[in-house]
């Protein structure tokens, strides 16, 4: 865990994000903003028949923390099953960032995580209705 918010890990993801862009036919897409600093993240998942995340992409703009976190998240969740992602917790997400965030910056670091959790909830809702 680094004390420097802007260490190489964060800046590398910010400058060269993993899977930044959009899917042609996402299984599910959702977006949210952080009104505090105007971060915006749009997250898209392609879920296969085994209920695994085949691809995860994000789009958006905002501070380095929010955008690097979205990049790290998409990289981490590919190949994971939806059930596995249900067990994915906020502290685990913060660990993946490898930097210590103050309370106010945790909103930036957890924005994409929050979107992912909303998506999983929406997927479940859809299933229980159908």
């Amino acid at each position: 865990m680094s004390d420097d918010l802007y260490d190489e890990h964060i800046l590398d993801h910010f400058e060269s994000p993993y899977h930044k862009g959009r899917l042609e036919h996402p299984t599910i897409a959702h977006e949210d903003k952080n009104p505090l600093c105007g971060d915006e993240v749009h997250l898209e998942l392609l879920v296969d028949e085994q209920n695994r995340v085949k691809e995860a992409w994000f789009d958006g703009h905002g501070c380095a923390i929010s955008q690097a976190a979205a990049s790290i998240l998409t990289q981490q969740i590919e190949g994971k099953s939806i059930d596995e992602l249900k067990e994915f917790t906020a502290p685990q997400m913060l660990d993946l960032l490898k930097v210590r965030l103050t309370a106010s910056r945790q909103k930036c670091g957890l924005l994409s995580f929050k979107i992912l959790k909303t998506m999983i909830y929406t997927l479940d809702e859809g299933k229980s209705k159908s």
Binding site: Y6, C37, G38, D39, G62, C63, A64, I65, C108
Partner: peptide
Amino acid sequence: VHPHDMAEL
């Protein structure tokens, strides 16, 4: 440099 990062630095 996003304004939020700027303020933090």
